[in-house]
């Protein structure tokens, strides 16, 4: 996970212009880091490219908006990183 986190944190820092030291595994991308939906699409593009995956952002957003899943499940970085790892593993399976 740490390697994935380092990559994701670097992407967030560069894409959203957030100091790297403010980004931790417990950071909430929206509530703590202030990343808006448009900026998150930029991050998703960089993550998709870096890991060769397709983050299912629309599905996640719909689930959160419908109250089926709390936003933390997708947007707290340790959870986001775990989901990226799972998508990468599924790709290689």
């Amino acid at each position: 996970m740490s390697s994935t986190f380092e990559t994701v944190a670097g992407i967030i820092s560069e894409t959203a212009d957030i100091p790297r030291d403010k980004i931790t595994l417990d950071s909430h991308a929206i509530d703590d880091l202030g990343i808006d939906s448009l900026a998150f699409l930029d991050i998703a593009f960089a993550v998709d490219k870096a890991f060769g995956i397709k983050l299912p952002l629309e599905k996640w957003t719909q689930e959160v908006n419908e109250g089926k899943v709390p936003a933390e499940e997708y947007f707290v970085l340790k959870n986001l990183v775990a989901r990226i790892d799972a998508l990468v593993a599924a790709k290689g399976a």
């Binding site: 699409l41 998703a44 593009f45 998709d48 490219k49 397709k54 983050l55 299912p56 952002l57 629309e58 599905k59 957003t61």
Partner: peptide
């Protein structure tokens, strides 16, 4: 270039 979820490049 890339077909994302909710976006495209």
């Amino acid at each position: 270039e890339h077909e994302g979820s909710g976006y495209a490049v």
